[in-house]
Design a protein around this nucleic acid. Structure first.
Lengths: 208, 208
DNA sequence: AAACTGATTGACAAAGCAGTCAATGGAGGG
DNA sequence: CCCTCCATTGACTGCTTTGTCAATCAGTTT
């Protein structure tokens, strides 16, 4: 009884293929960089023809825009799920948000590399703002609200907006480090760095 | 006496032209992004022919590598000058290092955009490490040494390496913000954010 | 002024790219 | 069993890009 897992059907539904091609795009950007990402390379990564990529996405630009929008939405849902299970206490909410940033579903080498590649192209192309400017703003607002609650509870002498920005920059920075550093440090250490930052900002909530 | 400033000579020395072309490359990367930077575009930005770019740099890859190496070395010298005028006290040295990061010679829109573009391509091409991996490591070491001295002086309960990393990430992060944010905040606020971070890390040295 | 050296140009070749399209093939419905 | 629909392919086009090179031009030396 050779129960070879039967190969996937040759033709797939629209949504399945689009998802597959978006994953292939993320992998290609991570492996070759944004500048050398070509339709042929994406198609090869997915084991499909390059004509099919354009059949599903019309232009290369749209493929990249939809890839970015997918990652932004994925990140948003990941955060939302983490917050939903965290209860109302602001300290617990911040801890959940931090933990979410280092879970393997989000914190993959490919995904981090793709994020950094998109950041690198952000200034020169409006499509970064179109795809996830609103979601970035939503994230910042969430974080500021939590920080404002913590500052109010703990009487900390720091503007909540500054605290939120520092946290966000340290989180994003560890992502960038994971991609650019010659000798990157492990995820656990990145997480510790962010937790240390939280402890500095809100010492009475995050005791050592 | 029409003293029109005479136009620059049609032919220039090797070093002058190379410097001019590197500046044009930075401007082009900032304006169009890494992926859409072409030799023709760089040449147009410098008012020269694209053949000349290859005459001076042989290949496009070498042009980009030398541009990155130039920026890394420029940054290193800028830091060194700031430290040289700061005296031996670690708090003064850290303050000088932070101030240096926000001076107009370094903190230009073009240069920040070019840095971010190179970071975005860093993971997929070894030339980022070749061009400035060593200088990045040197910077980290400098910062850690200063943080270690401050921790020793102030008895702060934080690993110096963590403190240095947090500072570096916040600095780099404000650079990234200046490039990627839809509504960027002014340089002065970026600087305040970093100073707030220093105050959190070393409260007895950087009083509010 | 004539010759020389090295910077500069622009025409050119070769390769790779995005995007088009007619032909193919497989799955499901009648 | 045929027909229809739509996913899929691969050949093809036109354009852009990098890199080559012979000719030219501007300073400098003799």
């Amino acid at each position: 009884m050779t129960d070879t897992p039967e190969p996937p059907p040759r033709t797939q539904s629209r949504e399945t293929r689009r998802a597959q091609l978006i994953e292939a795009t993320i992998a290609t950007i991570a492996a070759r960089g944004y500048a050398r990402t070509t339709l042929t390379e994406v198609a090869k990564a997915a084991g499909l023809s390059h004509g099919l990529v354009l059949f599903h996405f019309q232009t290369k630009e749209r493929l990249l825009a939809e890839t970015l929008a997918f990652m932004a939405e994925e990140y948003r849902q990941h955060r939302a799920a983490a917050l939903a299970g965290a209860g109302p206490a602001p300290a617990a909410r911040l801890a959940a948000l931090i933990e979410a940033d280092f879970q393997p579903a989000i914190n993959t080498q490919s995904r981090l590399a793709a994020w950094c590649a998109f950041w690198g192209e952000a200034q020169s192309r409006p499509f970064y703002q179109e795809a996830c400017g609103a979601l970035d703003a939503e994230y910042t607002a969430e974080l500021e609200a939590i920080c404002a609650a913590l500052v109010a509870e703990g009487g900390y002498p720091i503007p909540p907006a500054h605290a939120a920005r520092i946290l966000r920059l340290v989180i994003e920075g560890t992502w960038l480090d994971a991609v650019t550093l010659a000798e990157p440090y492990p995820v656990a250490e990145a997480r510790q760095t962010v937790e240390t930052t939280a402890r500095l900002l809100f010492p009475r909530h995050f005791a050592g």
